[in-house]
Design a protein around this nucleic acid. Structure first.
Lengths: 225, 225
DNA sequence: GTCTGTTTCAAACATACGTTTGATAGTTGA
DNA sequence: TCAACTATCAAACGTATGTTTGAAACAGAC
């Protein structure tokens, strides 16, 4: 056949293995044997392992960033010139992620875990790739966040955004494990949608906390300006 | 000399390289050449690379967990039978981390980044090692958190603790990079102490947010019980 | 000084990795 | 039917990894 499914089989296998083991810890031989294709197929179709990593991200990040764009458009339209509230901004992002068409039932957790890995694993080439390919929706989200939290100083906002990213990336990146633990400990089933529903108010409350430096106890030497 | 400093030189180099590159991405040859010792020294003194990773963690986790123990003792003494507040519990942990005696100026960020990596990189042996060596202070912190947030259901508390861990581990694991960015963008200097001072109120506010499931918009199909 | 145990060192080992090769099969368009 | 192109495959390549070896250097005790 003209357009073989080898490419997709490789992407599926790579996506899953990367998500559960990380990039350096996943070899091309694991990927190709899981995908039931020849070892050389990766280099033939993608060129290199790094290019395969990029392709895995591009496959879900490209549709996601356009979904996100329309979500942000809708939000700004609904707000009619007014800045959106923090909750609205966060929900726009969350719903876009949760609503993404998924290839299988594990789709959303893999998606999240890969995003978390992208931040965490210090793969220079990946960060560069993501920055130059997807900087636009990212900046737009940042701008919306800024409008949603006019009471924060730039420095406060900066750090709190990092805290939000951390809570999100970490939780989602290990959501499978965390769900299993909860299932065993308390016998509770949890969906990714539910995790998101718990995460957003947590983040919103954190973003809107009182002035951070007021409630700090004095350290040995207080180095706060 | 009877007790050579080779062991410490290896630990110093390994700690720094692990922190900035991750475990799989750091080879024994990088470590030994940075430490200026022979390649075989690692296997001679530690037995294996994994054992070296464990030793790196043990070197700062063991004193830290005893610092933590006294901090928790003090806290419970001060509270005199009453459960501590959430802010007190979080500060007890934070101050212990910040006050740890450090080998050098980079000590605290390396410490934090390694903790973040321990969570993030799915090194099975590491997780097992940490669980069986340091489960006690961890459980104690969890118990204090539980007493500090009696208003939360077990499930809510579970997820919010994960969110806290994520925000902390992620921020700390990339604190150097984040500080640099802030320095370049806004010309602001930041200490680790200051990051902690911003993080704690963020976490406390998130933990004490309103009932999460109330403010969720309806998804396509609402899967929340 | 010699013996004993410990530590260092250069070299090699076996294995795993990403990548390349060259032959073979399959498909397409004239 | 034949040529041109594309895709697959087994095999090999070069390199890097963690680990082991056996000899050399060093230490302290007698």
């Amino acid at each position: 056949m003209a357009q073989s499914d080898t490419v997709d089989r490789i992407l599926d296998a790579a996506e899953e293995l990367f998500a559960e083991r990380g990039f350096s810890e996943t070899s091309l031989r694991m990927i190709t044997s899981k995908a039931k294709v020849n070892l050389a197929a990766v280099n033939y179709h993608f060129g290199s392992k790094n290019a395969l990593i990029h392709a895995v991200f591009a496959r879900f990040l490209t549709p996601f960033s356009s979904t996100l764009e329309t979500a942000f458009n809708n939000l700004e339209e609904r707000c009619d010139g007014q800045p959106p509230t923090l909750n609205q901004t966060l929900w726009a992002l969350t719903e876009s992620a949760v609503r993404m068409p998924q290839r299988n039932e594990k789709g959303i957790s893999i998606f999240m875990r890969l995003l978390g890995l992208a931040y965490t694993q210090s793969q220079g080439h990946l960060r560069k790739f993501l920055e130059q390919e997807y900087s636009q929706p990212f900046s737009r989200f940042m701008r919306l966040l800024k409008e949603s939290t006019p009471q924060l100083s730039a420095v406060d906002r900066y750090w709190r955004i990092q805290f939000m990213l951390g809570a999100t990336a970490f939780t989602m990146s290990s959501s499978d494990a965390l769900r299993d633990i909860l299932q065993n400990k308390l016998g509770v089933e949890t969906t990714v949608q539910e995790i998101a529903a718990r995460l957003v108010p947590f983040l919103a409350a954190g973003m809107q906390a009182e002035d951070p430096l007021l409630m700090m106890p004095t350290f040995g030497k207080t180095s706060v300006a």
